[in-house]
Nucleic acid binder design. Structure first.
Lengths: 350, 350
DNA sequence: TTTTGGCACTCCAATGGGCCGAGTGCTATT
DNA sequence: AATAGCACTCGGCCCATTGGAGTGCCAAAA
């Protein structure tokens, strides 16, 4: 990331004022208004502005318009100029109240996304817990008609996953019970990925000692772990319609691109993965996201964790011209609260 | 519904031509173009048009523009003037191929909505099977930690419903098994609504003979039946973004209203219920729907059934100015195919 | 009686000129 | 280094003009 050590204190303050003003008004800001604030003459301001423009921090859309921040300008602003407003405690309490009462993680994330999108008046996006972080707690098999078995998997966050499995022949209830006991013993307490690997290894090792039946059941459990342990959708998007209120997005083509992107999640998932690694708030501004539909938007994300294990990411999508100083603490706090609520819900294996 | 017996054959043909033209071009159609088609002079056409306008079947947006159909005009058109194009057999086959291979009803409806929205380039809406039509097949209880019980309910369409229930005290696995057996015996084969009523009656009747434990379990099962038997969302909406392509909807406020309506489903559910009663295709044009956001839209719906029991409704939402003669058979056929596929998936109780 | 041609009229949409305001860059001055 | 002054540029707005599309009506033709 480029830093700008050559930037005088005054230039920085001016940039800050300019960005804040632009975020507030949405129109290119001229030298006069800034001059008033700074107690300097417009001409002086213009000189500084010319410098800032040369550094690529601001531009003007045309000759006789004011200036507005470029992506680098925003970058510098959020990285070192911004003073975040701490969140009012009452809001934090309210958030916690709403989140804490949710039964299951799915509900919890649903609520969180709803709250966040309402509070920010923007779109909210939350990735579901990853398979790597879900702990296998308990599996149960239920015989259905037609050589099919219903596998029910309970993970440590008390989420239920179902999968119907087609079996080569009919298993009796007793056989299924035996199998379930075996799997619970082998996999219990492991995360979904290593549970699966462990199960595979165990099956291979004990191949001789296990009955043919159990071996087959093993294959089945493998199947159940493969897909059943993941929720249907990798992430939630809520409040998309809020984006329609922003003038800079009030263009049908743009909106269409955005909404399309929300629906076919792949590219967004990639983006979110970038924010998974480290905890804390991450900001992606405009074209930094690297793909078109999000160009006029910024993304403010934070990962949420349980026991210092990163579970997923949540964040907010809005116009580049958003009130970062309000959004950042909101996202930050929400992520922490979601983590805490999730933690409270995650019980030790029985 | 007002009929127009006083309408001459020629006037009807003219109205038909006008509507078709307007649907095709999207612009008010003048007397000249119609004159060419009809082999009459523009002046003659104008006379007829004046009659049609007086009857409230067409209007002109302003003095020097052509005419376009009013809601009544569309109504008359779809009710008695329209000649539907039969669907190409290849498309039917393809649809069936795609639908028939789906594992569970949820997937099936998901696929159907995707296909329908793609084929029509409009938004598709499908209501999930209603509780009244789902047959209780099997219930199972799984003890969790913390005085909680996981109820697993299998319905006749092989869909799985889960619910976590908080219990006043800890039940043993054996107790739960007994309870499950009891409920399976009492409720098996009944639809969800009457299963619940039946269970309630049974509990009241046998109150003295049943153990306290079983009674409590009964309350629990009641809970499970109440909500667990219904999927989380009452209906699916797919392909909303397609609506952005239509010029008549290319207005952010309109779009916002529409999308908002899709999200908070209540009003839409009411609309769909209207189409539940009788089988066959139903069409709701513009303001007939009776609520604002859908004003510039039409709705083409058909209910789908299994064994002559209406399960739900599916349909398509698009601009009033849509190609009804193509959309109607598509919706019709899809509904039938969904019913057939669902039927194939619905197994007799074990 | 129905159809047609003609004519005056209305209205929209596109075009282009003129003007104002906002803002800049540059230069001379303090 | 900061400022005042000045010429210049550009977008937005208002407004008048024009052309085209279409109508309604009436009188003449079929």
């Amino acid at each position: 990331m480029a830093s700008f050590p050559e930037l005088s204190e005054r230039a920085q303050q001016l940039l800050k004022a300019l960005v804040e003003r632009y975020i507030g008004e949405g129109q290119p800001v001229g030298s006069r208004v800034l001059a008033r604030d700074a107690g300097l003459s417009p001409a002086t301001i213009r000189n500084v502005m010319a410098d800032l423009e040369e550094l690529g921090l601001i531009t003007s859309p045309h000759t006789s318009a004011g200036r507005l921040p470029t992506v680098s300008g925003y970058r510098l602003f959020v990285d070192s100029l911004l003073t975040v407003k701490p969140l009012h405690q009452a809001i934090v309490d309210q958030l916690w109240l709403d989140l804490e009462s949710r039964e299951n993680p799915r509900d919890l994330l649903e609520t969180a996304s709803k709250l966040l999108s309402e509070l920010t008046h923007m779109a909210c996006i939350i990735s579901m817990p990853r398979r790597e972080t879900l702990v296998f707690q308990h599996i149960e098999f239920l015989p259905l008609s037609d050589n099919r078995v219903l596998a029910i998997l309970v993970t440590s966050d008390q989420e239920i996953h179902n999968k119907i499995i087609h079996t080569p022949h009919k298993f009796s209830a007793a056989e299924l019970q035996t199998a379930a006991n075996f799997f619970n013993a082998v996999c219990g307490g492991k995360d979904m990925v290593s549970a699966r690997e462990h199960l595979r290894a165990e099956l291979a090792k004990e191949r001789d000692r296990l009955s043919e039946q159990l071996l087959q059941a093993g294959e089945i459990a493998e199947q159940a772990l493969a897909e059943g342990g993941r929720s249907r959708k990798p992430f939630l998007v809520r409040g998309e319609t809020n984006l329609m209120d922003f003038v800079e997005l009030a263009d049908v083509d743009r909106l269409r691109g955005l909404f399309e992107a929300f629906r076919q999640k792949e590219s967004i998932v990639g983006l979110l993965d970038r924010c998974l690694e480290s905890p804390g708030v991450k900001i992606i501004i405009g074209e930094e996201s690297g793909f078109r539909p999000l160009e006029p938007c910024s993304l403010v994300t934070a990962s949420y964790s349980v026991d210092n294990r990163v579970m997923g990411v949540l964040g907010v999508i809005g116009p580049t011209r958003m009130k970062y100083e309000r959004v950042i603490p909101l996202v930050d706090v929400t992520a922490k609260l979601v983590g805490a609520a999730l933690n409270q819900r995650t019980l030790a294996p029985t």
